[in-house]
């Protein structure tokens, strides 16, 4: 129990004193995860829309696969990305292992199925609603996709936030592909694992509270920023 209080006071103290180290790893956490989120959304959302509007033979299988991949174990993703990016691996020449880019790649793989699956559910419903109208208007495939994405943007924001939540708290994969290098690839979650390993529970817990606060803040910020054209809505 004392560890818990120590953790809380440690967190408060680190935040108040604007600890340079903390600031750095927090910003890196944000940067890696937001980059992964943008890339993953750019892949997952159009994919989800495409799966909603286009009937093709393997469509159901692809959707089932995406649903299944939502539960992809991050450690395995990390391991596979590691092997691919290692100097002795097929993509070794890129020299990406143990860089933030490698962490972004791993996170993208982990959250694309999640975002695509959640997005597909709402886009599918919206498509059922819009189907007759858009077909009647002779709307092109691409226009269907952009219309759905735009009109479902609130639901898609929720999908993206779910992806963010999974990515920001992820440790298994990014520990493996990032290497937890101080000043280079250390982020909040890997720092927590490290401090726990050193038996410094208070510091680990302090970092944990910062991580939670960060996740909450980003969620609030994205919700707030996403509330455009709110005037005259209802």
């Amino acid at each position: 129990m004392t560890d818990l209080w120590d953790g809380i006071s440690r967190a408060i103290w680190m935040v108040l004193s604007l600890d340079a180290n903390l600031l750095e790893i927090t910003l890196r956490s944000l940067q890696v995860t937001l980059t992964a989120l943008v890339v993953a959304s750019a892949i997952a959302l159009p994919l989800a829309a495409f799966l909603s509007v286009r009937r093709f033979r393997l469509r159901r299988s692809v959707i089932a696969l995406l649903n299944a991949l939502m539960g992809l174990p991050p450690v395995v993703v990390g391991l596979v990305v590691y092997i691919l990016l290692s100097r002795s691996g097929p993509l070794g020449v890129l020299g990406l292992l143990f860089t933030p880019t490698a962490m972004v790649i791993a996170q993208v793989i982990i959250i694309v199925p999640l975002i695509a699956s959640i997005a597909h559910q709402s886009l599918r419903d919206l498509w059922a609603e819009y189907h007759d109208l858009l077909i009647s208007m002779n709307v092109s495939q691409w226009q269907k996709i952009t219309t759905l994405l735009w009109d479902a943007r609130r639901a898609l924001l929720t999908a993206a936030l779910a992806g963010f939540g999974r990515a920001i708290g992820e440790v298994g994969a990014i520990m493996i592909v990032g290497g937890n290098i101080d000043n280079a690839t250390r982020v909040l979650t890997t720092a927590i694992a490290l401090e726990t390993g050193k038996g410094d529970f208070a510091l680990a817990l302090g970092l944990g509270f910062v991580l939670i606060a960060l996740a909450v803040l980003v969620n609030l910020a994205i919700h707030w920023l996403g509330r455009t054209e709110r005037e005259g809505r209802w």
């Binding site: 609603e129 819009y130 009647s136 002779n138």
Partner: peptide, 18 residues
């Protein structure tokens, strides 16, 4: 011909926009 025609449904489909 398709370009020059439109369709109004029994139950109007409203785009979720203004």
């Amino acid at each position: 011909a398709h370009h020059d025609q439109s369709f109004v449904f029994q139950r109007p489909v409203m785009l979720r926009r203004s």
